[in-house]
């Protein structure tokens, strides 16, 4: 096991060395992706120039929610976000080269496509979260501290699961990238706002079907000590980690099935 991890670490380091071969473009990437994270969170606040409350929540509360969502998404994106390149590997047959190495396919893809520029986004979102906790008045109790720590982890696991599941579609449908984005990037955007602003099938699918309510909405309710305006019992918020684990396991199973459907390309 330790030897295996060492092998992944070497693949990882090789990817970073490869990236730094193109220094100028790396610097550009780093700068631009860092800028975007700030914009995403700040764009939420723009809405509050028009309305004092969104789905029953004030600007500071929604800011905390958005920051929490961004932390989960940015870390998941840093770690496994690059599996979305699977479509390229499937189309070009480069996956063959990955399959002939004595290592797991998913961890290899994660290591060989690791994009260090995404670290910028993680840093920014963590900063936003720190700000979020200062602008919102949280009455800290042990259970709220626990929730503050569990929520980002739940977000990371859940978004990672969505990234993997979305990428897996490429085994059946090579041009599935945009469709998958609707659930990964779309899922991120969904979690920036309180679930109570959405309605109908859209809310049911994203909040409960994909479990995205557990990323930022329920945790913030617990942190604020507020009941759910939609009527969910408080204990539901604590189901976040098992739900995220379920999504991750489901994504893993889907991945294994997908791999069996890999068709390769000619010669």
């Amino acid at each position: 096991m330790a030897e295996r991890l060492l092998a992944y670490r070497h693949l990882f380091a090789a990817q970073i060395r490869s990236q730094t071969q193109y220094r100028a473009s790396f610097a550009m990437d780093l700068a631009s992706s860092a800028g975007f994270a700030v914009m995403d969170v700040l764009s939420v606040l723009v809405l509050f120039r028009m309305t004092p409350a969104l789905g029953g929540f004030g600007a500071a509360e929604v800011f905390l929610m958005a920051a929490l969502a961004m932390v989960g998404f940015a870390i998941a994106d840093l770690i496994v976000g690059n599996v979305e390149r699977l479509g390229v590997y499937v189309r070009t047959g480069l996956l063959d080269a990955v399959l002939i190495r004595p290592l797991g396919v998913l961890p290899q893809l994660i290591a060989i496509d690791f994009a260090p520029r995404r670290i910028g986004r993680v840093a920014q979102s963590l900063l936003a979260l720190a700000v979020g906790f200062t602008v919102v008045d949280v009455d800290w109790t042990p259970s709220r501290v626990t929730m503050a720590l569990l929520a980002p982890v739940t977000g990371v696991v859940l978004f990672s699961g969505l990234f993997v599941a979305g990428a897996t579609l490429a085994f059946w449908w090579i041009e599935s990238g945009e469709f998958a984005n609707a659930f990964t990037y779309g899922g991120r955007d969904f979690t920036l706002y309180p679930v109570s602003v959405y309605s109908g099938w859209f809310r049911r699918l994203f909040a409960y079907g994909l479990g995205l309510a557990f990323v930022s909405y329920y945790p913030v309710l617990v942190l604020l000590g507020r009941p759910d305006p939609l009527g969910a019992p408080e204990f539901l918020a604590w189901l976040g980690p098992p739900v995220a684990a379920g999504v991750a396991v489901g994504a893993g199973l889907l991945w294994r099935t997908g791999l069996r459907h890999y068709r390769g390309t000619g010669s």
């Binding site: 070497h10 693949l11 090789a14 060395r17 490869s18 193109y22 080269a97 190495r101 004595p102």
Partner: peptide, 25 residues
């Protein structure tokens, strides 16, 4: 595979060999 590479495109050949040493232990 004659039409595919198992090597690391952007790294010197020597480094690909070194990586494979770790991959295959």
């Amino acid at each position: 595979f004659g039409q595919r590479s198992a090597l690391w495109w952007d790294l010197p050949l020597r480094e690909s060999f070194d990586l494979l040493r770790h991959v295959h232990r």
